[in-house]
């Protein structure tokens, strides 16, 4: 295919890239070979979650090895390839912390309607192809849009801001920790989670935020 990429190579993560998407781009069936490659040992330390990469991270993409298997002619053969399934899990909550009861009337991934696994309570689980980018949930006349793979690591300013926004704390859309809206959201989160309220994102706030958000 025209978009085949030559391997081995170094891939620079762009916004929206997670390892599953990178692997698929290079025709790997799963992100495993990339993730487990010795050349990515440093990356694994820095980014413990293969699904959450920061824009600018460098990933080593190992050589794609084609496996040859001999089979007799004039016969039918079935080959099985195991895929590594990914899921989008969204847990919806009301402001007061109770599980949201809404049921989206329609779920679309990149414009195509999909069926979300029926799940009890707030959690919606949506099976994903690794290249899925945009998941839109229709709620009455309104639409809630999620961008898959755009979540940045918790130790980046963007990652903190995105998680605060997901948690309804409205930290704004600028990666400036001194901005009033950002600080307001951080302090409100600290206050809600019984942390010292200083408006600064330290290790305790970071880990509480990652825990509250769920990843």
């Amino acid at each position: 295919m025209s978009d085949d990429k030559l391997t081995p190579t170094e891939h620079a993560i762009r916004l929206g890239d997670h390892l599953g998407r990178v692997a698929t781009t290079y025709r790997f069936r799963s992100f495993g070979p990339l993730w487990n490659d010795a050349a990515n040992a440093q990356l694994r330390l820095r980014r413990p979650n293969p699904h959450i990469m920061a824009a600018g991270d460098a990933v080593h993409v190992p050589e794609l090895i084609y496996q040859e298997v001999d089979r007799p002619t004039d016969a039918r053969h079935r080959f099985r390839a195991e895929l590594h399934p990914l899921e989008l899990k969204l847990a919806f909550f009301e402001w007061n912390g109770t599980a949201s009861t809404f049921v989206p009337s329609e779920v679309r991934i990149d414009g195509k309607e999909v069926v979300a696994e029926p799940s009890a309570g707030a959690l919606k689980v949506i099976p994903l192809e690794p290249l899925a980018d945009r998941c839109a949930l229709k709620l009455g006349p309104e639409e809630l849009v999620t961008r898959i793979g755009f979540l940045q690591p918790i130790d980046t300013v963007a990652g903190v801001r995105q998680r605060l926004n997901n948690l309804g704390l409205r930290a704004g859309d600028a990666d400036d920790p001194t901005a009033l809206g950002f600080r307001s959201a951080v302090e409100e989160f600290q206050c809600d989670h019984h942390l010292p309220v200083d408006g600064k994102v330290g290790p305790a706030t970071r880990s509480a935020l990652a825990k509250a958000h769920g990843c």
Binding site: H51, I52, C135, L144, I148, G149, Q152, N165
Partner: peptide
Amino acid sequence: ADDFAVAPTD
């Protein structure tokens, strides 16, 4: 700002 940035998972 109205889009939610999320991560896939396994």
